[in-house]
């Protein structure tokens, strides 16, 4: 034993290998089974993917660091379920590359914020939170209304998402830019085919109140309004783990 360790230590490369092996065991044992397991992620056949506009909104959510203060993971605790809604299931974030579960609630959890408030409320709140919630400490995101949303690169984004395993079809990728515009301008020609590709329940409306101009606000509000609505698996599953 002793001779063994002395050899390890005298020979630098062997020492390096020893550290790598010893340190890797924990990660392999905990992470590898998550990829082989079927019960880690529940089945949700009706789960839909993010529309290009919602995906762009999600990128803005990450860009502005929203995840630093808002979690998207309701734990299996009674008070959380009563405050925020049914606890989060793994399947609900299966298309989230990366996940945005968060680790801190300076603001409330927003895993189920979709459709809880009106679009106009979100726009006003993002423009200046203290106009709607006087005690809020959230930053004002006024530039979201000013900035036009970049959509010409959206096919590339969908393609990258498909490369990591999200089932986007060729038609979705091809029409990504058009669909992004159409979702927020339901009267326009661009709106044709969006519900066909993403489902009849897709929110089709001018999220920032102006259908003529596609802003970053449109994208972010579209994302906020779909939160917790990609599948109804959580509502349908019996919540048996509460208080575990």
């Amino acid at each position: 034993m002793s001779e063994f360790h002395r050899k390890i230590e005298r020979n630098t490369m062997r020492f390096v290998l020893a550290i790598i092996v010893v340190a890797s065991i924990g990660g392999i044992v905990e992470i590898a089974p998550l990829f082989t397991i079927k019960s880690t992620v529940e089945a949700a056949p009706n789960m839909r993917v993010y529309t290009p506009l919602e995906l762009a909104g999600r990128s803005i959510y990450m860009r502005e660091g929203c995840y630093a203060c808002h979690s998207q993971m309701i734990r299996t605790l009674r008070d959380e379920v009563e405050r925020y809604g049914p606890y989060s299931l793994a399947v609900e974030s299966q298309y989230d590359h990366p996940m945005l579960w968060g680790s801190k609630r300076t603001g409330p959890d927003i895993a189920r914020v979709g459709e809880k408030y009106s679009d106009a409320w979100h726009v006003a709140h993002l423009y200046n939170p203290r106009d709607v919630v006087p005690e809020s400490v959230m930053p004002a995101y006024r530039w979201l209304l000013r900035n036009e949303l970049r959509i010409d690169d959206l096919p590339g984004h969908l393609r990258a998402m498909r490369d990591v395993g999200v089932p986007y079809t060729d038609a979705m990728i091809e029409n990504a830019a058009k669909d992004a515009f159409g979702q927020a301008a339901p009267e326009s020609d661009a709106a044709v085919g969006v519900t066909e590709r993403y489902g009849a329940a897709t929110h089709m409306r001018a999220f920032d109140g102006n259908a003529g101009r596609l802003t970053e606000m449109d994208a972010l509000v579209a994302y906020l309004q779909i939160m917790g609505k990609l599948t109804d698996a959580a509502q349908k599953t019996e919540q048996t783990k509460i208080g575990e």
Binding site: V22, I25, G26, V29, P33
Partner: peptide, 20 residues
Amino acid sequence: MHDMVVAFSKSWGLFYLVAL
């Protein structure tokens, strides 16, 4: 396959700890 991986993880983790 999966059961094997999990069983390995759950049992051998402790063994490694003690042996090390």
